[in-house]
Nucleic acid binder design. Sequence first.
DNA 1: ACGGTTTTCGATTATAAGGCGAAAACCCGC
DNA 2: GCGGGTTTTCGCCTTATAATCGAAAACCGT
Lengths: 248, 248
Amino acid sequence: MRSHINSNSPLAHEVLAAVLQVRSATLQVLLWRRALDPHLGRWSLPGGRLRPDEDVEQSIRRQLAEKVDVKQLTHVEQLAVFSDPYRVPGPRVVATAFLGLVPSGVDPAVPEDTAWHPVDALPRTAFDHEAIVQRARDRLRAKLSYTNLGFALAPKEFTISALRELYSAALGYRVSATNLQRVLSRRGLLVPTGNTAPSGRTGGRPAALYSFAHDDMQVTDPFAVFKPPAPKQGRRSRTRVSAPDTVT
Amino acid sequence: MRSHINSNSPLAHEVLAAVLQVRSATLQVLLWRRALDPHLGRWSLPGGRLRPDEDVEQSIRRQLAEKVDVKQLTHVEQLAVFSDPYRVPGPRVVATAFLGLVPSGVDPAVPEDTAWHPVDALPRTAFDHEAIVQRARDRLRAKLSYTNLGFALAPKEFTISALRELYSAALGYRVSATNLQRVLSRRGLLVPTGNTAPSGRTGGRPAALYSFAHDDMQVTDPFAVFKPPAPKQGRRSRTRVSAPDTVT
DNA sequence: ACGGTTTTCGATTATAAGGCGAAAACCCGC
DNA sequence: GCGGGTTTTCGCCTTATAATCGAAAACCGT
């Protein structure tokens, strides 16, 4: 190793995605098993080489659609660049990592060699992929609090309890259904669909179904000290729309 | 152009930084004038090619230290990857963009061909550098609200009014000194140094000097709905420390 | 009809931010 | 040295948002 340090340094660029989904009340990530050396048999993130005619966003979307059938991807955003010169053996490869989200409930068809793994109990992973998964998880957790990113994790219709479980799984600790309900409502993000859930097995009051008001990411600004006077709107929490990765 | 689309696509990686500083009550960015074609004479961001033996962080720090004497850089963080295949003419170059901050007050020596420009009134810039500057500005503005990133913009000691001007300039609108004072105090970020400012020209009560409590970036979580019970600490706002770019 | 269960909602409390004005602390000129 | 002018600082009050709690509502099965 350390071979390319003095070479003419051909450099490749790859894109990788940590695709997260809540399944069985656990936050999981999609990994596939390497069939090649190095790190044969280890689990790694989907992705691949950047092609000459695409930017990194296009590339990761193509590769995800190619390798694993996840057109159900509801959210994709850049995470960070991983560029340690020796992050992979052999010729240098710089990686742009992404965070991808799949709504709970669906079970996208995936190839034989891929499987979901809990982010907090990863198998032996290849290269620096574990670090990337952690970063993705952290980013998701941070953003769940001050954005409506939950929309990307939830199905189109859901009950408050279902949403609560979703958030609990994603965040790693219990959250109050009551509070979740009202905080999201206050922010104008929850709209009742009118429908009601099949009351199901255990009995109990049938839950109302809700959906998110927006499919694009919105950011609710935390504090106002640093905010302009805000032209005295109606109710609605002070909420500002911005491009998905403007805020990150 | 569009020449490399069918070639064997050698690919280069460069790092660029939007180094921001508040000078003359205006948020400005350091640019240098290109001496080469293409885009000769236009203003562009400092940076350069990634070397084989360094990662992007090391690279941008080296290049900044090299090209412009800014060892006074108090903060550096990854912004995003810019990877449009045709973002620069000729062979493809993917760029990792950074946000850099220099505290107000200092005036680092810079080469002849570099100069500061207000971010809201940029001259004609090269390539996609204007977009990068805007992203840097947006990121800074967002983070000023919910982090203590102000520490990187402020000198070691400062008065509340000075800090207010700093925030006003960086954010682009007036903020209340009173509120700024108390919000930062509540978060435990402002510590009085005991010293007092030279009362100076206009007369008036001499201002007390403060400094930031932490030099590493901290994030104050906005809402608690999604937060664990918080083990009943003393006072101090609920505040969580995290690696600079974990949250971004 | 009656427990058992789950959801929903209102009332109350807690915490953080914003606004306002008075008091404090300094300078200067008379 | 005293009052006017100026800037800073601080307390008090209001508003906005979140957290907690408990009771009522709506369903099931027996």
